[in-house]
Computed example of a mutant assay.
Amino acid sequence: MVQILSPDFPPLSRKIPSSAEGASLRVNEIFLSLQGETSRVGLPTVFVRLTGCPLRCGYCDTAYAFHEGERLSLAAILMEVARHGARHVTVTGGEPLAQKECLALLRLLCDAGYSVSMETGGALDISKVDARVSRILDLKTPGSGEVEKNLWSNVQYLTSHDEVKFVLCDEDDYRWAVEMMGKHRLDHTCPVLFSPVHGKLEPTVLAEWILRDRLPVRMQVQLHKLLWGEGPGR
């Protein structure tokens, strides 16, 4: 058995099942930063970035995670997460659900007492993700080049605990996102986030569209890029 230790959270000093030693994931990086997006923006968060993604969005800023990474046991991942001493954890990628053991990692993080979110591109099934995880479903717009990969059956599994994100390249993307939000009644299910592609769609322009159309959405900009520039940020 491996002990999780964290200076801030006595509830996290729980034992990890020995089965976590055998299971593993290919991990690109694990780091502490401020959450740059979603309703958790600004919160100190440990990011677990997994390797691999089936999508190739034109604006992707983490292409280095497509292939780079090392294989770590789930126990090693949990120990590294605990070392940072933060309450919030985000599992991201790449596309985290591209690796089947991601489901086990999410469950173990929840069992350990963390507040867990997962960022997924929307092309893979989310139905088996632990219900305690906040699933951030990034539905792909036409401007991404991957709109045909959206798995729309995922919408039926969303709850008020989850969030839907649209990353917008231009006004065509905006109009499409508004249409999809209405068609699937997304704003009646969970928070909906509209985000401009950094360096391509001016945030002020998107803000004006949202106000003009009285949309029930949360606009977001990528806080980490404002703080640390074009890289993924720390």
Rank of each mutant, 00 (worst) to 15 (best):
G42Y: 11
G42C: 10
G42N: 10
L43V: 14
L43Q: 13
P44D: 12
T45W: 09
T45F: 07
T45M: 06
V46G: 02
V46I: 15
R49D: 06
R49Q: 08
G52R: 04
C53V: 08
P54I: 12
L55W: 12
C57P: 09
C57D: 08
C57I: 07
C57R: 08
G58D: 10
G58L: 13
G58M: 07
G58C: 08
Y59V: 10
Y59G: 09
Y59H: 13
C60G: 08
Y64T: 03
Y64P: 02
A65Y: 02
A65E: 04
F66D: 08
F66H: 11
H67K: 12
H67D: 12
H67M: 06
H67P: 00
E68Y: 08
G69D: 03
G69P: 07
G69M: 03
E70T: 13
E70M: 07
E70R: 14
E70D: 11
R71M: 05
R71V: 13
R71I: 11
A75F: 02
A75Q: 07
A75W: 01
A75N: 05
A75L: 03
I77L: 03
L78I: 01
M79L: 09
E80H: 03
A82I: 04
A82F: 03
A82W: 00
R83N: 07
H84C: 02
A86T: 05
A86P: 04
H88L: 01
H88Y: 10
H88R: 07
V89F: 06
T90L: 11
V91E: 02
T92V: 04
G93Q: 04
G94K: 00
E95K: 02
E95N: 04
P96V: 00
P96H: 02
A98S: 14
A98Y: 10
Q99A: 03
K100V: 07
E101D: 14
E101A: 05
C102M: 05
C102F: 01
C102A: 14
L103V: 01
L105P: 01
L106R: 00
L106A: 01
L106I: 04
L109I: 02
L109Y: 02
C110Q: 11
G113A: 05
G113C: 06
G113L: 06
G113D: 03
G113T: 09
Y114I: 05
Y114C: 06
S117F: 12
S117G: 15
M118T: 15
T120V: 15
T120L: 07
T120N: 06
G121S: 14
G122S: 10
L124C: 13
L124V: 14
L124W: 10
D125K: 10
D125W: 11
I126C: 15
S127A: 15
A131E: 15
R132F: 07
V133Q: 10
R135C: 14
R135V: 15
I136R: 06
L137I: 14
L139R: 11
K140H: 06
T141C: 10
T141K: 04
P142L: 08
P142R: 12
G143A: 13
S144D: 08
S144W: 04
V147A: 14
V147Y: 04
E148F: 13
E148C: 11
K149A: 13
K149I: 02
N150V: 07
